[in-house]
Design a protein around this nucleic acid. Structure first.
Lengths: 105, 105
DNA sequence: TTTATTCATCGTATATTTGCGATGAACGAT
DNA sequence: ATCGTTCATCGCAAATATACGATGAATAAA
């Protein structure tokens, strides 16, 4: 590849692609749904519901945190994960905008 | 990784993740927009508009075709690429459903 | 038939993602 | 102070993605 060319695009396209990347693994889709279904959710709760190890789930949570779709509040040795409604709404709006630009329906 | 675990999830979550993956590179976001702006579009037209080689653009087109967001109609030595409105609409609907499940706004 | 155009695919290099076990940090409870 | 719980991170291995040049197939035009 030599070097990535991802930054030779507009910031909007890059941001949208980045959000899409965060959604591009079924485990992360599932995690978002789990976090909404359960009001409070620790990492261990999610591990129990997924066919993945604790360290792998932790990585997926980190990716969702990176783009701001969730946040984790430290509570002693636990971390309470929640969806970030503000950023989810922003992501929804930007995706809606993309589809309105791209789809002639 | 040993083996991927992507198929240990529901078909819906896997399909959504797959659509998101197709949108997870700014070049592919850009290509979708270009295909909408121009009514008829050959691969070479897109290559002229992107900082990527012809073979790389062809790969991105292939990925968009794989999930059905675009289709290419052969026209002699040319290939006429278009967005696939039906599947774009389906993708939009499924993403809307996800956000309605996941976002408390 | 030869030539030019258009594009997909192959081969290759590098980067990134996915996944796990092991380890250690942080904290509450004993 | 010690122990158990919770979780992030490190180190590693394997799989995928990104990017390019080279090549070849397919067709239109000459």
């Amino acid at each position: 590849m030599a070097y990535s060319k991802k930054n030779e695009f507009t910031q909007e396209d890059t941001w949208l692609a980045d959000v899409a990347k965060a959604l591009s693994h079924p485990a992360r889709i599932r995690i978002l749904k789990i976090l909404t279904e359960m009001n409070v959710c620790m990492c261990g709760d999610i591990v129990d519901l997924l066919p993945l190890s604790q360290s792998t789930v932790s990585q997926h949570l980190k990716e969702l945190k990176r783009v701001g779709l969730i946040h984790g509040d430290i509570d002693g040795p636990k971390v309470c994960y929640c969806v970030n409604n503000i950023n989810l709404q922003k992501a929804k709006q930007e995706l809606d905008l993309l589809f309105s630009q791209v789809c002639n329906c």
